Computed example of a mutant assay.
Amino acid sequence: MQQTIIDRIEPVAEDVVSVTLRGAAGPLAPWEPGAHIDLRLPNWLTRQYSLCSDPADREHYRIAVRHDRLSRGGSEYIHRYLRLGRPLEVSLPRNHFPLLPAPEYLFLAGGIGITPLLSMLRAASDAGVPATLVYVGRSPEKMPFLDELRDRYGQRVRVIATRRDGRPDLAALAAAFGPETGVYCCGPGPMLDAAEAVFPAERFHAERFRPVARTFAPDTPFEVTCARSGRTVPVPADASLLEALTHAGFPLASGCREGVCGSCELSVLDGEPEHRDDIGAAEGRMFACVSRARSARLVLDL
């Protein structure tokens, strides 16, 4: 974890605040566009937020938080109780949504989904790569960083306020860009589903706020052997791997508990995991909050 101090809090749209964190002990860890961090809040909650500042600025991290009326305690605490000068622990940045090389980019943002795309658009612009941002929201007042984007990028930013303009024609948008265009999308699930249906899978990259609803076989018990300690931990059918390990004295970092943030990643040395995450676990890795085992036993690097 890294120690930071809240350096600035400011509204950037209706129900959205920008929070700038300053390193308490010198430069912060480096990061690349698309990365996010975990915030360990004083109310004992851990939440994940995309970094939306300049990666070249090692003194500060910036995030933006929308006040969710159905908040589980994270966004409400940030909006109501965080104050300037407050110390906060944050994780090292993680990136499951990296910006890959392409001759041209299309960034498609929905509301607060603009946050990971801000640094991507900056990186593409700084590299001289053609890039277009299509920014969708209910109204301009609800779209964070809109003035900043217009001032910096001008006509490269297309704003679609759905109350005024209706929903974007994503099929027409897909037809307007060449086959090599890298498409990066972040926003509400329905928008991502619609975009995924019209853009070719090989050039479409998305980050979701919530996991895609999928059906899996019924949960069954399995065992995990912790290679470094030599202990074996049973995982009953009615508990997650994360819960079983925590109860056995192997506390893991965890945030979303939905398979979208990546904070509970584990190394698998033997056995076959059943991946249920929305990130796409790399070979030999799994996410303990949602994933289980196809084999009767897993060996983990714990």
Rank of each mutant, 00 (worst) to 15 (best):
Met1Lys: 07
Ile5Met: 10
Ile6Thr: 13
Asp7Tyr: 12
Arg8Gly: 06
Pro11Glu: 11
Glu14Ser: 10
Asp15Trp: 03
Val16Gln: 07
Val16Ser: 04
Val16Asn: 06
Ser18Phe: 02
Thr20Val: 15
Arg22Tyr: 02
Gly26Glu: 09
Pro27Ser: 07
Pro27Gly: 01
Ala29Leu: 11
Ala29Gln: 12
Glu32His: 10
Pro33Thr: 03
Ala35Asp: 09
Arg40Ala: 15
Arg40Lys: 08
Asn43Phe: 09
Leu45Phe: 01
Gln48Asn: 03
Gln48Met: 03
Gln48Cys: 14
Tyr49Gly: 07
Tyr49Val: 13
Ser53Gln: 11
Ser53Thr: 01
Ser53Asn: 15
Asp54Val: 04
Ala56Asp: 15
Arg58Trp: 05
Arg62Glu: 14
Arg62Ile: 04
Ala64Lys: 00
Val65Met: 12
His67Met: 12
Asp68Ala: 12
Leu70Ile: 07
Glu76Ile: 11
Ile78Lys: 03
Ile78Met: 12
Arg80Ala: 15
Leu82Phe: 05
Arg83Val: 15
Pro87Val: 14
Leu88Ile: 13
Pro93Gly: 12
Pro93Lys: 03
Asn95Leu: 11
Leu99Glu: 10
Ala102Val: 04
Tyr105Ile: 03
Leu106Arg: 00
Phe107Arg: 01
Gly111Val: 07
Ile112Tyr: 05
Pro116Glu: 13
Leu117Ile: 00
Leu117Asn: 00
Leu118Tyr: 03
Met120Pro: 13
Arg122Asp: 15
Ser125Lys: 05
Asp126Ala: 14
Ala127Glu: 14
Ala127Ile: 13
Leu133Pro: 00
Gly137His: 02
Ser139Arg: 14
Glu141Asn: 06
Pro144Gly: 01
Phe145His: 04
Phe145Ser: 02
Arg150Ser: 07
Tyr153Phe: 14
Gly154Leu: 03
Ala171Val: 00
Leu173Tyr: 04
Ala174Met: 11
Ala175Arg: 14
Phe177Gln: 10
Gly178Pro: 06
Pro179Arg: 13
Pro179Tyr: 10
Pro179Met: 11
Glu180Tyr: 03
Val183Pro: 04
Val183Gly: 03
Tyr184Ser: 01
Cys185Lys: 06
Cys185Leu: 09
Cys185Met: 08
Pro188Cys: 08
Gly189Ile: 10
Leu192Lys: 02
Ala195Arg: 07
Val198Gln: 11
Glu202Ala: 15
Glu202Gln: 15
Glu207His: 08
Phe209Glu: 08
Phe209Tyr: 14
Phe209Gln: 09
Ala213Arg: 15
Thr215Val: 14
Thr220Lys: 14
Pro221Asn: 07
Val224Tyr: 12
Thr225Glu: 15
Ala227Trp: 05
Val235Asp: 09
Ala237Asn: 09
Ala239Met: 13
Ser240Pro: 02
Ser240Arg: 02
Leu241Pro: 00
Leu242Gln: 06
Ala248His: 01
Gly249Ile: 08
Gly249Trp: 05
Phe250Gln: 05
Pro251Ala: 06
Ala253Lys: 11
Ser254Leu: 08
Gly255Arg: 07
Glu258His: 04
Gly259Gln: 02
Cys261Arg: 01
Ser263Ile: 05
Cys264Met: 01
Ser267Thr: 15
Ser267Gly: 04
Glu272Ile: 10
Asp277Ala: 05
Asp278Thr: 06
Val290Cys: 11
Ser291Trp: 09
Ser291His: 04
Arg292Ser: 03
Ala293Trp: 03
Ser295Ile: 14
Ser295Phe: 11
Ser295Cys: 08
Asp301Asn: 14
